[in-house]
Design a protein around this nucleic acid. Structure first.
Lengths: 136, 136
DNA sequence: TCCAAGATGATAAATATTCTATTTTAAGAG
DNA sequence: CTCTTAAAATAGAATATTTATCATCTTGGA
């Protein structure tokens, strides 16, 4: 846990117990939690935690490029603490989101007329499907 | 305009003036409006229109596969009346969304472990960039 | 140990969307 | 053309999500 403290202190985070709990929860987390999921999980450890603190921490992480918003689920935003570029697949039945670790950057070329209009800064692929658990 | 009436009647739509105005506004519309944009545009023609009617019509169109939700903009949902599969690029400065008419279906192959877990039903590519107007 | 910047938490507010109940209307039957 | 009924429209309340405000408290460096 020491390395987490150093990691975020070096990024300019002031580390309070609440914030540290959130950072530890997110570290290496591949469950793509919603703000609500983070909040209710943290409530167990810090019952006085407020939603504002969750959103503040999310905001601080986003500003430093350590967390990204996932919009694949139209119902609500999910968050992903993995800064490595990757994609996602969502089960349209249970809304579970799984990482898709593949690099499509070479194949996703834009039509010429759009290349003239835009300077591209990023790409993200959303896959939709039904997972084995929901197929039965 | 006759063909719009027939098109939607044959799909089981009860055509009220408000609904018809929304359908005409969306027909061939590539501006990817938000619910708010549809509402304020329709207000000009039907001042008594309520937001519920906008959402009801959106819902009815979605159920019939004639409208899809676009989640590329984390701020709000946009809607696209083009049922043909395609992708989008958003300007991260002005939030303008443009269609990307390209077929990547051959190149977007999933890693084997995910193919075992999911039956894929669809794919959508989000491109992020800055448009010429915002670059200056 | 002290201080200032920044974080917390309660609350209010803004935004987006859905729901409820009532009134109105479209469209087919007769 | 009128009647009937299912569906749609409306207003407004309700819910959910996210942001803002502000007084209080805490972290971390001087």
């Amino acid at each position: 846990m020491e390395h987490i403290i150093n990691k975020y202190k070096s990024k300019g985070f002031k580390l309070t117990p609440q914030r540290l709990a959130i950072l530890r929860f997110l570290e290496g987390n591949t469950s793509h939690p919603t703000a609500e999921a983070i909040y209710s999980e943290m409530k167990k450890v810090h019952p006085t935690l407020s939603f504002a603190t969750v959103y503040n921490t999310i905001q601080a992480l986003k500003e430093r490029g350590l967390l990204s918003e996932i919009t694949i689920d139209p119902e609500r935003k999910h968050f992903d603490p993995n800064p490595a570029p990757h994609h996602h697949i969502i089960c349209t039945a249970c809304n579970r989101i799984i990482d898709v670790m593949a690099d499509y950057s070479e194949t996703l070329t834009l039509p010429g007329d759009i290349l003239d209009q835009f300077t591209v800064t990023g790409t993200h692929v959303d896959f939709f499907g039904v997972c084995v658990d929901c197929r039965s």
